[in-house]
């Protein structure tokens, strides 16, 4: 385990607390790590001194009065979550799904452009070499152009793909947060 894993585990174990409370606690432990490392200790040594995250969290939840903990979800909350989930599924199926699928389809089909750019000049080259149609120099030139254009478009597509992926993930997370209610 390292510092970040330790803090992450602690954060999860402290989920019954409010966000502000949790952030403050994590800040204290982060500071402890920083001070310890400036003192020449390794992350592992500091963790051994601190004790396991679940012990710390248990201790913390014991010490804090109940008022600080987030109220448990009631049945009406669950009903609200279920209704919201159903509404979201409908909205997503009707309005979101089709455009997203279309965009992804268009995106994938753009890879055929890359393929064309890179491989069609070979046809020229083949014809000029074997059938003696057109000049070899011109077809080599086209080959160079084609490959560079293909690589450029390919890189652009990778970049766009990364953003499409991010946006879709953000949207999914947004939906999850909406249903959970925080």
């Amino acid at each position: 385990m390292n510092k970040e894993q330790y803090l992450k585990e602690l954060k999860q174990l402290l989920s019954p607390l409010t966000k502000e409370e949790r952030d403050e606690i994590l800040y204290d432990y982060r500071e402890h790590f920083d001070n310890g490392m400036r003192d020449g200790k390794t992350e592992l040594e500091i963790i051994n001194e601190l004790g396991l995250p679940n012990e710390v969290a248990e201790n913390m939840l014991e010490e804090l009065p109940d008022a600080e903990q987030q109220p448990k979800k009631s049945n009406t909350d669950y009903a609200r979550m279920i209704v919201l989930a159903i509404v979201l599924i409908f909205v997503n199926c009707i309005f979101v799904l089709a455009p997203v699928v279309a965009i992804i389809g268009a995106y994938i089909s753009l890879y055929s452009v890359v393929f064309t750019f890179i491989f069609s000049p070979f046809v020229f080259l083949y014809h000029s070499l074997v059938n003696d149609v057109g000049s070899v120099i011109a077809s080599l030139f086209t080959l160079g152009m084609g490959i560079s254009a293909g690589v450029l478009v390919f890189l652009a597509l990778l970049w766009i793909g990364k953003w499409i992926y991010r946006i879709i993930r953000m949207y999914i997370n947004f939906n999850i947060k909406l249903v959970r209610g925080y």
Partner: peptide, 24 residues
């Protein structure tokens, strides 16, 4: 916090992590 932890563990064997709940 860290200073306190060091000063206490000089004399007493403790899990330093339990110091912060107490301080809070």
């Amino acid at each position: 916090g860290y200073e306190l932890a060091q000063n206490i563990s000089k004399n007493i064997d403790l899990a330093e992590g339990s110091l912060y709940p107490l301080l809070r």
